[in-house]
Simulated scan of single mutants.
Amino acid sequence: MLNIIPRSPLLSNIARFDPFTNIDELFKGFGMRPFSMETETPSLIKIDLTENDTTYTVRAEIPGMKKEDVKVQVDGNRVSISAETKQEKEEKEGERVICRERYQGSSYRSFTLGSDVDESKAQAKFENGVLELTLPKKNGKTAKQLEIK
């Protein structure tokens, strides 16, 4: 004779908890997230790309940067934008240093367009944290670093 024992509804809801695979769950509710070497920081350079029959137009938001800190390189149909900054701030109270903060950071963004760019006619303008590139289309390949106005 075979006896079948019905499962308890409480036992069917039990789930195994592995703290190494569910690390986010372990810290949930504490208002913090664990440090992870695998965490990828998102690019600070956000772009809008439009095109018509003859030209690509790129608008890139690069907040907190100066024109001198931004570099643009065009190589055929590949466009690379990089920005690097270094800032220091010091607060003194009399002769004692109360606070000294340093910031150094860089951002990089590269993308490929559908057509090669005519580097000789390409233009770059930077104003109020927004880089605007006008990239006329062409056939052929040469590399040129653009001067930002």
Rank of each mutant, 00 (worst) to 15 (best):
D18W: 02
P63W: 01
D69M: 07
E68T: 12
M32Q: 04
S36R: 14
R102L: 03
E93F: 15
D24Q: 02
V79G: 08
E101S: 14
F17E: 00
E38C: 09
R102Y: 02
F30R: 08
S106F: 13
R109G: 02
L44C: 06
S115N: 13
G114N: 15
F20E: 06
E132V: 15
K92S: 09
Q87C: 01
V130G: 09
E101L: 14
L11G: 15
I45D: 01
D116H: 10
R109W: 04
K125H: 13
G29I: 07
S120Q: 11
K137F: 04
D53K: 15
P6Y: 06
R59P: 01
G105T: 05
L11R: 12
V117K: 07
K66T: 02
R16A: 08
I62P: 12
T112E: 10
K86C: 00
G105I: 02
G29Y: 01
I5T: 13
V79K: 05
E132D: 02
A60Q: 02
I81D: 01
K46T: 15
G94I: 10
I98K: 14
E90K: 13
G129Q: 05
G114I: 04
A124N: 10
I47W: 00
L113W: 04
P63C: 04
T55W: 00
N3S: 09
L26D: 00
N128W: 02
E40M: 06
R96F: 12
E61C: 01
G64K: 04
L2S: 13
E40T: 13
V58N: 01
Q87S: 11
G94E: 02
S106K: 14
V130A: 05
K67P: 00
N139P: 03
D48H: 11
V97K: 14
V79A: 04
L131E: 08
T50E: 05
K144N: 12
A122T: 09
K66L: 06
T41V: 09
F35S: 09
D118E: 12
Q123R: 14
L135A: 08
E61F: 05
M1F: 14
V117I: 14
F27L: 11
I5F: 08
I45V: 13
L10K: 13
E84Q: 11
Q123W: 00
V97L: 12
I81C: 03
